[in-house]
Each structure stands twice: as C-alpha cells, then as structure tokens.
Nucleic acid binder design. Structure first.
Length: 425
RNA sequence: CGGGGAGUAGUAUAGUGGUAGUACGCAUGCUUUGGGAGCAUGUGGUCCGAGUCCGAUUCUCGGCUCCCCGACCA
C-alpha cells in the first residue's frame, strides 16, 4: 500500500479527552475514528490489525475442528424471555421495537441464539462433542464506555460455544478451549493469566477470566508469587494468603481480554437442547462459552507494546510487515534514483508476499516520515535515501530497537529471511 | 447509578462583560528533504437553550456531549 493513497492521516497532537495511551496512539495514528463514547469506526490500519487477530484465531480454531457460523445481531425478544434474561440482563441489554411493535433485542451475547439453533440440530449422543464459533458484533448499553477501544458499546467478539453429553466431557472441551486460548495469546504476545472468576449474569458452574497484567488495567486480581495461583478479588474472600500454598498474595492491575464459562445445563434446559443416548434416553446437553473481545485485545496490546514515540506491534498482528520510507534529496538525479530504487523494492517485496506500507509521499520531510513510522509501529523499517544509496544499500531498523543496519542492495534477496526471523527480545 | 473534570477553527490551545488570538492542518506559489523544515498569501471558531445586562464566548440556571474515578463487563 502506498502511504500517499492511505485514507487516513496521522496527527502530532494528542486528541483532547484521550487519556489512555492506546486510545491516544490509535487516534493519532489514524487507526480509529470516534463517533460517540464507546462507538468507533475502524479505519484501514485499525481494521487490518483486527483482521490479523481474527484470522489468527480462525486458523487456530480450524486446526482443532471448530466450525464457524455467523449469528444475527437482531434477536426476537421471545428468545431472551425463554431464558429469563429479558428481565435479568439489566440495562445493558439493548431492547428495541420494530415498526409493528415487535420486541427485539440487539445481540449483547449469543447464548440464546446458539441454543435455539442447537435445540433444532442436536439429536444424538453421537453428534457430541461439538464446538462452534463466530466473530460477530456485540451491542451493549454500557454505563461507562472507556479508554477508547478498551470498553466499547459496540465491538467484535470471538465467541465459541461447546456442547457435550456430560460434565466430564464439558471439562474436556473447556480444557481444549483454554489450551487454544493460551496458544492464541502467546501468538499475539499477550501474557494472559487464567483467573478464577464469578459467573455473574451468564450463570453456570465455573468461569475463568483471561487477565493481562497492565498498569492501565481496571480489574484487580490477587496472584500468588510462589505458585502463581490467581483469582479475581470478588471470588477470593481473603486475598492476603494463597489458598493453595499460604503465601502472601500480591494485588495487580489487569485487563480482562477473554472469558470462558462452564454454562452447564442452564441454557439447554431453558431452550430444550436434548440428545438421545444409546439406550434412547434423553438428556440435556452440557454447554460452555468462550469469548475474546477483539478490539479490547488490540488495545491491550498497545497498552503494553509502545514507547514514547508510538506503537510497537507484535509481528503477527502488525498492519504491515515492512514500512518502506523513501526520502528526498536536493539533487534531482539522486532523487530520481531514490524513487526508482524504492519503487522497485516495493514491487519486489510484494512479489514475495511481504506486506509493505510504502511511504512514497514527496512533500513530506524525512522527520515526518520517521515520526509516522514510529507512531504506526510496523515491525521493520526500511529506508532508501541519498545516504544509503551512497553505500549501494538500504537501511534496516526494527521498531523498538536502536540498532540500524545497512544492507547492500545486492543482498536484498535475503531480506525475506531477515523479516521472517523471529523477533529478538 | 454516585463522585470529579472539560466543551473556543479540521486538530491542539490562549484570552476577555465591549472588534476572539496563537500553533499545527488545509489551499496556492516558491524554497526544502536523516527526526513533525522555511517564507509569503489565503481558509476557518466561542456546544445548545433560557436568564441577568445597553451589551454574554465570558456571569447565573437548565440541557446535551466528552473524559476520569468507583460498580459491572470482553
């Protein structure tokens, strides 16, 4: 992508009212646009990051046989009345009416809809276990949206639902999901601690929150420094001593990026999801649900991976692999050579499937291009300039590192090796 | 839902009971190109409503919006 063609621009100024670093950097870098509190558009760069996260999750899920669906976000009120949540969900549940005075609900979550489907599809023990997933918009009338993308009124959630024949198998599905979540968080470079939490509105028997340690976090959890046992403060009555080893617990601020619930039979009973065992006897299925807030995960990453100049994206979810900067020169001939070299490099990188943001802007000063590169946070920066061409080279620098290397133009074949090498710490 | 802060140009900010200023941006021209570059010209603004006053962007009241802390959530 040529930066001159990019829909958005960056700004130097920190927008008024943005106190969270991720919020500031997203706005300044042109990743998002705010329409109202907790309501944002994802601009091209923001959408690219979100899709990277989404696709990474999708691939991990495909590998363990999870199917994908996309459920509606308009739900008939009747569904929510069946489970009782029409009354118990509170003000967060957004209720609307159609022109015919039909009561509808905007999807706050999808237990009701998936259960309605399962009630109509699950028949026999042989069909279980089953896990289905979706990436879909959730709409919640939040009392207090905050921190840009950290807490939204409208957001994309990855939400998966498991169906099992009994509790023992539910435990297996649950474990499988926790394992895949750990894998996902590792890939997006978040250290997410599974923390025992209360089940709240969702109901069911057991739940785990995936908490990422962050200064700007809004939750407080207790962690045992010795055995790493962690629990939400609302579940733990006595937060001073670890219930497992008796060591004094430490309180840390965290952001909740995911939540996994064992729902048990709450929804299968309400919605009549029954299977027949081998003897022809009917049983309610055991359900579980598992969700990651995509925008929140994205914002959490920025809360952790940034410096005073901008974002430092982890490799797997950066909007581009390479930021190619083409600088100017007062010498016409050199200027032309710089342009030709960068243009060629841009084409070559794309040919080997490296995603490049090419700063081809002619009117921008070198300083501004560097500042933008730091702000946007693409993992690898390549500079073509008068200085580098004197050495028949381009300059390569990793975002977040100080080291700058010159690489001969003739050695650029190896660039893709260089890019795919694991990020050093 | 309780507590606190804030609304002035596209953005960030200053100031004043009497003609609203600066910087950035944007537009045009020229000059520039290794850390948000220079000169010139131009563009453009007091959240809404009521009240006090000769006069309100400023004071008072009401509303709306945004941000932060607490409760809840992904």
């Amino acid at each position: 992508m040529k930066q001159s063609q990019l829909f958005t621009k960056t700004t130097k100024e920190t927008p008024r009212g943005a106190t969270f670093i991720s919020h500031q950097l997203f706005l300044r870098g042109g990743f998002i646009f705010r329409h109202a509190s907790g309501i944002y558009t994802l601009l091209p760069l923001g959408l690219m990051v979100l899709r990277k996260i989404e696709n990474l999750i999708r691939k991990e899920f495909e590998e363990i046989g999870i199917q994908e669906v996309r459920m509606s976000i308009l739900h008939p009120a009747e569904l929510w009345k069946k489970t009782g949540r029409w009354d118990t969900a509170g003000k967060e549940l957004w209720k609307i009416k159609s022109r015919n005075e039909e009561d509808l609900v905007l999807a706050m979550t999808h237990e009701e809809t998936i259960s309605a489907i399962a009630a109509n599809t699950v028949r026999s023990e042989n069909e279980l276990p089953m896990i289905v997933n979706q990436f879909q918009t959730k709409i919640r009338d939040e009392e207090r949206p905050r921190g840009g993308l950290l807490r939204l009124r409208e957001f994309i959630m990855q939400d998966a639902y498991s169906f099992d024949k009994d509790e023992e198998n539910l435990d297996k599905s649950f474990k499988k999901m926790v394992e895949v979540y750990n894998k996902i968080f590792k890939r997006i470079e978040l250290i997410a601690i599974p923390v025992k939490a209360s089940t709240g509105l969702m109901g069911g028997s057991d739940s785990y929150e995936f908490m990422v340690l962050a200064e700007s976090g809004e939750d407080r959890i207790a962690i045992c420094p010795k055995c790493n046992f962690a629990a939400n403060l609302e579940v733990l009555k006595n937060a001073e001593k670890c219930p497992q080893c008796g060591t004094e617990m430490k309180i840390k601020r965290t952001i909740e990026v995911a939540h996994a619930f064992k729902l048990g039979t709450k929804y299968s009973k309400a919605m009549n999801i029954l299977y027949e065992d081998k003897k022809g006897k009917k049983h309610f299925v055991q359900m579980g649900c598992y969700g990651i807030g995509l925008e929140r995960a994205m914002a959490t990453i920025v809360e952790i991976y940034h410096d005073e100049k901008g974002i430092i994206w982890p490799k797997e979810i950066a909007p581009f692999d390479v930021h190619l900067l083409s600088l100017g020169s007062k010498n016409e001939a050199i200027k032309e050579k710089i342009q030709m070299t960068s243009e060629k490099l841009y084409q070559e990188l794309q040919e080997v499937k490296i995603e490049v943001l090419y700063d081809d802007r002619k009117e921008k000063s070198a300083g501004e291009k560097f500042a933008d590169a730091d702000l946007i946070g693409i993992p690898l920066r390549i500079v073509v300039s008068e200085k580098t061409l004197k050495e028949d080279s381009v300059e390569i620098k990793k975002r977040g590192e100080k080291e700058i290397q010159l690489i001969k133009l003739s050695d650029l074949k190896n660039l893709s090796d260089f890019i795919s090498s694991p990020a050093s710490d």
